[in-house]
């Protein structure tokens, strides 16, 4: 037992412990082809069974700690993506799944694509692949949890950006 700790430190430790053991996730498809979505679902089903890490996929952003994003960001899904992110309680973490979520992938250059998720939201974990295998998605989640144990702060807080970066909509790129 360490006696020189303040009660705030203890509380922080308790919160981290709780957070690492039961991260609740929400999934949003902002323009994906479905491939990553079905692989995320496959990680929840018996063969891969992501729930053994305490991760639970559920419906409301207000209950979520982790936002799992798939697909490039399309112009019309962008506002929704930001709104969902803002509805999530702090601290919140973003996992970008799939090549499209990383950079726009195969859709790069299409007129309705803004690019990867990090054009709109601060991203904590990038999982590449088209689509990533379920093992890769699990690896991404586990890496995030390990980082959390080591006292990782969300990407948004580290960069001092608590609100998403506004994206100019009349860009020519």
């Amino acid at each position: 037992m360490e006696f020189n700790k303040t009660w705030q430190d203890m509380l922080e430790q308790l919160k981290t412990w709780a957070r690492v053991n039961s991260p609740w996730a929400i999934h949003f498809n902002s323009g994906s082809c479905n491939g990553c979505d079905i692989e995320i679902l496959a990680t929840l089903t018996p063969r891969y069974d992501m729930e053994r890490f305490g991760l639970k996929l559920q419906g409301s952003p207000r209950h979520a700690d982790v936002l799992i994003c798939t697909g490039p960001v399309t112009r019309q899904a962008r506002d929704r993506l930001i709104r969902i992110y803002e509805q999530m309680p702090d601290p919140k973490f973003v996992i970008a799944v799939g090549s499209c979520a990383l950079s726009g992938g195969a859709f790069q250059g299409c007129y309705n694509i803004l690019g990867g998720i990090d054009q709109v939201l601060p991203v904590d974990v990038y999982v590449p692949g088209c689509p990533p295998r379920p093992e890769a998605i699990i690896d991404g989640v586990v890496k995030l949890l390990e980082q959390l144990k080591a006292g990782y702060q969300p990407a948004a807080r580290r960069s001092g950006v608590l609100r998403p970066v506004p994206v100019p909509v009349t860009d020519a790129g």
Binding site: N29, S30, G31, S32, G71, P72, T74, Q76, A77, R80, F107, G109, C110, Y111, N112, I113
Partner: peptide, 10 residues
């Protein structure tokens, strides 16, 4: 239209 990516034009 939320996942309209402009594939045909692309």
């Amino acid at each position: 239209g939320y996942v309209h990516r402009g594939i045909e034009k692309g």
